[in-house]
Design a protein around this nucleic acid. Structure first.
Lengths: 128, 128
DNA sequence: TGTTGACTTACACTTAACTCTAAGGTCTAC
DNA sequence: GTAGACCTTAGAGTTAAGTGTAAGTCAACA
């Protein structure tokens, strides 16, 4: 039978607007319809949506995701190209992790700095 | 004497447009001017810009950065509030790092999966 | 039977964060 | 003395990624 757009919205955390937008934009391949023309999602769709969210949330632009997904339709010949794109993205994610770790440290230092300023201010208050 | 906007643009990696935009929006506190009305940045500005970039690049929205920066003008009384905001943001960064690490693994698996499919396809090719 | 709720499409609107353009001022070098 | 490289502001335009609205279909329920 398949899932309604409402169900998929709840399961994926994407709004119904966003799901329709993704299909419209070709990010999500055409979703099957029931006899009334209503979208009828299946488990494969849900899996694909999960991959799309993963790519999106790690900073891949919608346009790139679309390109990646569209390769799936071309079957075996595009497997290595898909793999290449994922590998490229993996490098990107790893860089981002390093970057974030560095910045987490910076922020940590800044926090310590603010704490020391506060302490200093308090000491001065007590002396006055 | 201070640095021109061009110099700061080069040093910070932000475009001149962006630097003016940040000042306009109050993300960057008012920059000093020379006798011709041209912006005249100093080392403190550069430091602040570096902090702003750090916050921005770790996902803090411009509006929140603005709020954080504006607290600086209020002196000692706002130190603990500034520290609180930074701590909050630090939590956010740490979550993001974890999230990215999980997704890096997912992508890794996907890559392995594609590689196995390719291998399979190749074997079938050789047999045919 | 009529109204409520879930769905559809097409299209307009929003938001964040820039990015560019136009029109103009000032300084330096030939 | 004028061309070129700087800078200025105000305000318009762009891009990505949604988000919302209007008008309509359809099925189930009181």
């Amino acid at each position: 039978m398949g899932y309604s757009i409402k169900t998929i919205s709840q399961k994926s955390g994407l709004s119904q607007y966003t799901l329709r937008y993704y299909e419209r934009e070709g990010v999500l391949p055409e979703v099957a319809r029931d006899e009334h023309g209503n979208r009828c999602f299946h488990d494969e769709d849900l899996e694909l949506i999960s991959l799309i969210c993963c790519l999106k949330d790690t900073g891949m632009p919608i346009a790139d995701i679309k390109q990646f997904i569209s390769l799936s339709k071309e079957g075996h010949s595009s497997l290595s190209e898909q793999r290449r794109l994922l590998q490229q993205h993996k490098v990107h994610i790893d860089e981002k992790i390093k970057f974030f770790q560095t910045f987490a440290e910076k922020v940590e230092h800044k926090i310590a700095y603010f704490a020391s300023l506060e302490e200093q201010a308090e000491t001065e208050n007590n002396e006055a």
